[in-house]
Design a protein around this nucleic acid. Structure first.
Length: 311
RNA sequence: CGCGGAGUGGAGCAGUCUGGAAGCUCGUCGGGCUCAUAACCCGAAGGUCAGAGGUUCAAAUCCUCUCUCCGCAA
């Protein structure tokens, strides 16, 4: 089939490469406009664009694909289907209806759960045992289209959003190939989503990482993993921002400590912080302006005393 | 030219303002104590103080430039 690929970040790349190396033909690629990024604010092209340039695929980077002139351009591309994975823009009905086979989306959750922008991160934050990817026939709603195929992925106890991202990313290629195969044969079996079961996974931002020590230790531990590597869970030590990268739920040393109190310092393993229920052994941290490091290394150079309170 | 922090033995830091013998906490190695130890005691190795240039009798420290890392912002 002739495919229009639509995607932007690293997450989209393995699927794009799979399609390029398949029997299908990627005739065009849509990705977000190049933007100033990172320290120094240098203009950077998107990961998807880099791959396209190498592969010689025409790249389209409209700022707003909804605009009528952009819709016309899209319609004039001779394609059978569009494959969308983490593109970053809402597609209007005219676009969705343009290709004969419509637009198929690869979403990083088991729909109808975790519709929205940050599905796998929220799956980790909420302590789910498993998640996965779903292909769906897109409609105008936010991830509300009919479901086509799914792949289930287990979430390990030490899973971070980063490791899960990599697993899901790699699973996308196979699933879309199967979906395309069924589509060509006319054997797709679209299943309506049960809206009553739907949950929403809103985009994350910096503020979602502020640790509330009054919450149960397990909840905080899930938050730490779900926000790793971005935007990261953090707290404040002596007025300085401190990211927490790794922690482990342990028993509370003493019930009298208010949540957020450092109740035990172990130079070898880290330090224990009292939480709303149980406590957390902090094992890897990063103070502002510093590299991330093992808690034991951090304790070598930082005079951390028991009784101090994190905010 | 977006704002800011940082680069000092293997790790994490102090020392830089007020130039004048390279320190701290750990780790490593050797020895001792011990039924034993991740504990304790004694000893040792390991550094062109990111790099280049400049000022000075003298630079980790002051001046100029470069490289690298990190936080914010996007």
């Amino acid at each position: 089939m002739k495919i229009i690929f639509m995607g932007t970040p690293d997450f989209s790349v393995p699927t794009l490469k799979t399609l390029i190396n398949s029997d299908h033909e990627v005739v065009a690629c849509y990705t977000q406009p190049d933007k100033p990024k990172g320290r120094g604010k240098k203009i950077q092209m998107t990961p998807v664009k880099e791959v396209c340039l190498e592969a010689g695929i025409p790249v389209y980077q409209p700022k707003r694909i909804r605009n009528t002139d952009q819709v016309e351009i899209f319609k004039n591309i001779d394609a059978d289907i569009a494959v969308v994975i983490a593109y970053g823009q809402i597609l209007p009905k005219e676009i969705l209806d343009a290709p004969p086979f419509g637009c198929i989306n690869i979403h990083a959750s088991l729909l109808p759960k975790y519709r929205g922008a940050a599905p796998y991160q929220w799956a980790v934050i909420n302590g789910e045992q498993s998640t996965g990817i779903t292909t769906m026939q897109m409609d105008v709603g936010m991830d509300t289209g009919d479901m086509l195929l799914k792949t289930i992925i287990n979430i390990e106890d030490d899973e971070t959003a980063g490791t899960l991202h990599d697993k899901l990313m790699l699973a996308g290629g196979d699933l879309i190939l199967k979906t395309l195969e069924l589509a060509e044969e006319g054997n797709l079996n679209p299943i309506k989503q049960d809206d009553d079961q739907a949950t929403y996974a809103p985009m994350l931002d910096k503020t979602s990482g502020k640790i509330n020590w009054h919450k149960p230790a397990k909840e905080i531990e899930c938050l730490i993993r779900g926000l790793n590597p971005w935007p990261s869970a953090f707290t404040f030590l002596d007025g300085q921002l401190m990211k927490v990268w790794k922690a482990q739920v342990v028993d509370r040393v003493n019930e009298d400590f208010t949540p957020g109190t450092i109740c035990l310092v172990n130079p070898k393993e880290g330090f224990v912080v009292s939480c709303g229920r149980e406590a957390l052994l902090i094992k890897e941290v990063q103070l502002q302006g510093k590299k991330r490091m093992e808690a034991s290394a951090f304790l070598n150079g930082y005079q951390l005393t028991e009784g101090r309170i994190l905010e």
